[in-house]
Design a protein around this nucleic acid. Structure first.
Lengths: 143, 143
DNA sequence: CCGTATCCATTCCGATACTG
DNA sequence: CAGTATCGGAATGGATACGG
């Protein structure tokens, strides 16, 4: 399975991606996800279990000391942030009507809004989507 | 429908995303997609029709003068490039075994490999996923 | 409030056969 | 080669009822 199909398989489906988005928005509880997404409880349960099984989310004891669990993104799950930004950015670029409010991601430390997702070559030069097309197999150099 | 769900709805499903990836790899013909993905012809047909209906792909006369069509990415479809990069990058970061060959995207003009997808704030400062979390509704300022 | 178990209708997908 | 039409089995998702 290739470098694109494997992530898709791990994420699972569309619902899972929306769960992950909600997790980035700070949601943690079963009921919060269900209320936000409006999907059946058994489906949500299965999706959360799958995300945990794939190491994207993890369960932690409830922060309020309650008898239940909370679901949080692992490091691996947090690595999906650029994917969600790309998705939202594409949506804003091609779907939004003029005057429609945008949703901007904000760095919580400096409170600076994120401008754009950028592609950069190894020499630091900026690349646009239009001139970056071909794939090429290379040796693994990163850990 | 929010800025994440709408793109998901337009793309359709995961088969569609793999079709788009193949299109970035230069595939254009019905049979090429089918052979590459191994999905049933009726499914492929439906997916291509959906992608065209959503303005992500378009049909053009066969480049070899044949009696059939070819399927190419529109501008809107090409805008999905960062999404695919993000997906693949995540896969390489969290799924690849040491020694497994990576697939690197290459700028076809300069032949430079793409290094990383980066998030930048409006002041140009580099942001990491870890400190960039919250969403905030804003006014639409772009066209 | 958090989940699991069960049921049912619908959808989805692959295989196949068929047309140009 | 490039699709369309059809069919049956499998998987899916929503509603609901139930239990911790």
């Amino acid at each position: 399975m290739c470098g694109v199909a494997r992530p898709l398989d791990a994420i699972g489906d569309w619902w899972s991606l929306l769960i992950i988005r909600d997790a980035f928005d700070g949601l943690r509880r079963f009921g919060e996800f269900q209320k936000s997404l409006g999907l059946a409880k058994n489906i949500l349960s299965a999706r959360l279990r799958n995300l945990v099984a794939h190491g994207i989310m993890d369960t932690v004891p409830a922060s309020d000391g309650g008898p239940y669990q909370e679901y949080v993104l692992t490091q691996k799950g947090q690595g999906l942030f650029p994917l969600l930004v790309a998705l939202r950015q594409w949506g804003e670029d091609f779907f939004f009507e003029p005057g429609e409010p945008h949703v901007t991601l904000v760095d919580r430390v400096t409170n600076m809004p994120v401008r754009r997702l950028e592609l950069r070559a190894q020499d630091g030069r900026m690349l646009m989507a239009e001139d970056t097309v071909i794939v090429m197999p290379t040796e693994n150099t990163r850990k």
